[in-house]
Write a protein that binds this DNA or RNA. Structure first.
Length: 336
RNA sequence: UUUUCUUGGGGACGC
C-alpha cells in the first residue's frame, strides 16, 4: 500500500497524472484497499486530468469509506471541483467543513481565481483569519494574470510590510510583472533582493529573470543570469534566445540554438517561434526559411499554425507577398 | 508515504 501510495504521489508531483491513475486502477484490481493517502493522490490526479468522472468516483469512495471527514481529503476535493469549474460544489464542501484551515481557504481562493471570480477571491483573502505564503502568492499571481502589474508589485510590498517572507514562487510572479512593466530599475532591485534574501533560484526563477531583463531592455543582464544557471531546459534557452532576438541579433540567436541542440536539449515548438520572430525582425528571409524547413526535416517537429504565421510575417515584411500567400495556400491546415 | 491537500517560468501578428 505504501509503495503504491509513494508511486502515485510521485507521479502526480511529476505531472504524470495518467500514470498515477493507472497505479490506482492496478491497486483496485488486485484488491488492495486504498486509504486516505492513496485517495489524495487519486483526487489530485483526476483534478489535473480534468477527469470529472473518475473524480466523482473518488468522491463516492471517500463517502462510502468515511474518509470525507478528513480535512485534507475535503480540501483536495474543493480543489478538484474548482478545477472542474464546479464552484457551487466546491463551495458546498467548503461550507460543510467543520474545520476550515488555511489550506481550505487557499484552495477556494485559487479556485475562484482560476474561474475568473477574482472578487470572491479577494473577499475571502481579506476576510481569512490567517493567511500564509500561498495565500499571498495566489493573490499576487491573480493580479499578474489580470495584467495588473503595478497592483501586483504593490501587493508584494504590502506582503513585506506584514512581515511575510517571499519565496521563489513570489519572486517569479513579481519578476514576471516587472518584465511586463519593462521597469529596469525595479528589475535590478528584484535581482538584488533575491540574492540578498538567499531565495533559492531554481530553473523557473532563473528563466523568469532572463525573460524579465530582456523585456526591460537589458539583454546583457539577461545573459549574465542565463550563463550563471547551473541547468537549462528548453524554456530557459528560449528566454535567452528571446533576449538576443530583442537586440535584433538573429545570428546570435541561432548560435544559441545550435549550442542548445549540441547540449542535447530537445527543441520544442515555442523555441522555433522565438527564432522565426528573430529572423522576421532582422529581415533574414533565407535563414528563416532554412530554419523552418529544418523543423520537420532535422528536428522532427511539425510546424503548427503559429509557425506558418511567423513565416507569413517574415515573408510579408520582406515584401515577398506572393510567396507569403502561396505559403498560406499550401498549409496543411485552415488559415486562421 | 520524495513534499498529505492549495500558489510560479519561455510564444507570432494586429489593435
Amino acid at each position: 500500500l505504501v509503495l503504491c501510495n509513494t508511486m502515485m504521489s510521485n507521479y502526480v508531483h511529476q505531472g504524470l497524472a495518467r500514470e498515477a491513475l493507472a497505479v490506482f486502477d492496478e491497486m483496485l484490481q488486485q484488491g488492495l484497499q486504498p486509504d486516505r493517502v492513496t485517495l489524495l493522490s487519486a483526487i489530485s490526479a483526476c483534478s489535473h486530468l480534468g477527469d470529472s468522472l473518475s473524480g466523482r468516483c473518488c468522491h463516492g469512495y471517500a463517502l462510502r469509506n468515511g474518509l470525507e471527514g478528513f480535512d485534507n481529503i475535503s480540501n483536495a476535493m474543493i480543489d478538484m471541483y474548482m478545477r472542474f469549474g464546479k464552484q457551487e460544489m466546491a463551495g458546498k464542501i467548503f461550507d460543510c467543513l467543520p474545520k476550515k484551515t488555511v489550506v481550505s481557504r487557499n484552495s477556494m481562493i485559487a479556485g475562484f481565481v482560476r474561474n475568473g471570480d477574482v472578487e470572491s477571491a479577494w473577499r475571502m483573502f481579506k476576510e481569512m483569519p490567517e493567511s500564509d505564503l500561498v495565500s499571498w502568492n495566489t493573490m499576487i499571481g491573480a493580479l499578474v494574470e489580470e495584467s495588473k502589474f503595478e497592483e501586483a508589485i504593490e501587493l508584494f510590498r504590502d506582503m513585506q510590510s506584514k512581515g511575510m517572507k517571499a519565496d521563489k514562487v513570489t519572486m517569479v510572479e513579481v519578476a514576471s510583472a516587472c518584465g511586463y512593466l519593462g521597469a529596469l530599475d525595479l528589475a535590478k532591485w528584484i535581482h538584488a533582493y533575491i540574492e540578498k534574501n538567499e531565495i533559492p533560484c531554481d530553473m523557473r526563477l532563473g528563466t523568469t529573470l532572463v525573460d524579465m531583463f530582456a523585456r526591460c531592455g537589458d539583454p546583457q543582464s539577461a545573459m549574465r543570469v542565463f550563463n550563471n544557471m547551473p541547468r537549462r531546459d528548453v524554456s530557459a534557452w528560449t528566454a535567452a534566445i528571446g533576449a538576443t532576438a530583442m537586440e535584433g541579433n538573429g545570428e546570435r540567436a541561432m548560435e544559441l540554438f545550435d549550442e542548445m541542440v549540441s547540449q542535447g536539449v530537445k527543441p520544442d515548438g515555442v523555441v522555433f517561434v522565438a527564432l522565426l520572430t528573430a529572423f522576421s525582425h532582422g529581415g533574414s528571409v533565407e535563414q528563416g526559411q532554412k530554419l523552418f524547413k529544418s523543423m520537420k526535416e532535422v528536428h522532427g517537429i511539425s510546424p503548427e499554425i503559429v509557425h506558418y504565421g511567423c513565416m507569413v510575417d517574415l515573408l510579408s515584411r520582406a515584401g515577398m507577398l506572393k510567396e507569403a500567400s502561396d505559403l498560406i495556400k499550401s498549409m496543411p491546415m485552415e488559415p486562421n
